[in-house]
Amino acid sequence: MEVDLEFLIGGDWRNRIEALPSTSDYAARIREVGGTWPEGFVAHHYTRYLGDLSGGQIVRTLLQRHYDLEPEAVAFYRFDRIEKPKVFKDRYRERLDAIDWTEDQRERVIAETALAFEFNARLFDDLAAAKATA
């Protein structure tokens, strides 16, 4: 989130950092499917949004504790407008399950969800490598 970057790096963060290749690749894929294939966008939304709403809460807590970060530094992992995350996630999944996709659509969405997971894994690997060399 921009607010995280501004808090951590400063108002000129856009001039001071560059996206990792994995981030650029991931963003390009989301733009591609978002503009041409709505079901593909849903696969990425599901992977990121529910992932951050679930495991991201643990990541947020660990980051804050380990690095003594202020809440403003981890805004990406805050979902202040979701009162009950479990209820929200259950309803989200119910709505996805209710979509009347053909078998081909379903298979394609599952494949795209796996691809989204791979993009996420590559991004985290690149972040770890960048941190190790910093």
Results as ranks from 00 to 15, higher is better:
Phe7Tyr: 14
Leu8Thr: 08
Gly11Ile: 02
Gly11Pro: 05
Asn15Thr: 11
Ser22Ile: 02
Asp25Leu: 14
Asp25Phe: 04
Asp25Glu: 12
Ala28Phe: 02
Val33Tyr: 07
Gly35Lys: 10
Pro38Asp: 12
Gly40Phe: 05
Ala43Leu: 09
His44Cys: 10
Arg48Asp: 04
Tyr49Ile: 13
Tyr49Trp: 11
Gly51Asn: 07
Leu53Cys: 06
Gly55Phe: 09
Gly56Pro: 05
Ile58Ser: 07
Arg60Glu: 02
Leu62Asn: 03
Leu62Gly: 01
Leu62Glu: 02
Leu63Ser: 05
Gln64Asp: 02
Arg65Ala: 14
Tyr67Arg: 06
Asp68Val: 08
Asp68Leu: 10
Glu72Thr: 01
Tyr77Gly: 02
Arg78Gln: 10
Arg81Val: 11
Ile82Val: 14
Ile82Thr: 04
Lys84Asn: 14
Val87Ser: 04
Phe88Gly: 00
Lys89Ile: 15
Asp90His: 00
Arg91Ile: 06
Glu94Ala: 09
Arg95Ile: 12
Arg95Leu: 15
Arg95Gln: 12
Leu96Trp: 06
Thr102Val: 01
Thr102Trp: 00
Asp104Arg: 08
Ile110Asn: 06
Leu115Met: 07
Phe117Tyr: 12
Phe117Trp: 09
Glu118Cys: 01
Asn120Thr: 08
Asn120Asp: 15
Leu127Trp: 04
Ala129Phe: 08
Ala129Asn: 08
Ala130Val: 01
Lys131Pro: 00
Lys131Glu: 14
Lys131Met: 12
Thr133Arg: 15
